[in-house]
Simulated assay, not measured.
Amino acid sequence: MTIQDYTTYIAGLPRVLVGAAALFRDAGGRVLLVEPNYREGWALPGGTVESDAGETPRQGARRETVEEIGLDVELGPLLAVDWVPPGPLRPRPPLVAYLYDGGVLGAAQLESIALQEEELLSWRLVAPQELAEYLPSELGRRVSAALDVLAHGNGPAELEDGHRVG
């Protein structure tokens, strides 16, 4: 195979998006959610990994956290990785979503949150039992799996569309 053949082969391979986020909690176990302005619903601090620039999922989650809420926190272990296929409501390539432990934020850190106004409207802390109301899709299942990993040490969780498979 020549270099040109190899380049053509690589260019024809399927594309997959990579996303990464951080799961932050407060001392009471509530989860930090952000409200994007570019779509309905709530999310975690995070976003698309800039893999073309050599960024890893962990680096992407940390960069996005700094950009979105102004907190530069060293992330803990990987809690979950989720294969999210495209679908009628998700007209995009498949997504591999990494979710890292952001840890427990103290009062001073919570007070210092500075939202990226270009992308976010607000933030809030949500009790685990209320998460389904704010995150009704695969993201909610991913967060629940991550909280289970934190509680029971049975991770990281391997997920498909938010459902544990491994």
Rank of each mutant, 00 (worst) to 15 (best):
V84E: 07
V84K: 07
P85V: 06
P86A: 01
P88V: 09
R90D: 10
P93R: 12
P94S: 08
A97H: 10
Y98V: 05
Y98A: 03
L99F: 01
Y100C: 01
G106E: 00
G106T: 00
A107L: 14
A107V: 14
L110G: 02
L110Y: 01
E111D: 05
S112P: 01
I113R: 02
Q116W: 10
E117A: 14
E117M: 11
E117T: 14
E119M: 14
L121Q: 08
S122C: 09
S122V: 07
W123T: 06
W123L: 10
A127E: 15
Q129C: 11
L131W: 09
A132L: 05
E133R: 13
P136L: 06
L139A: 10
L139W: 12
G140W: 01
R141H: 05
R141T: 05
R142Q: 15
R142L: 14
V143L: 08
S144G: 07
S144R: 09
S144L: 02
L147I: 08
L150F: 05
H152K: 04
H152P: 06
H152I: 04
G153S: 00
G155R: 12
G155T: 11
E158D: 15
L159M: 14
E160S: 03
G162C: 02
G162K: 03
H163S: 13
H163I: 12
H163M: 15
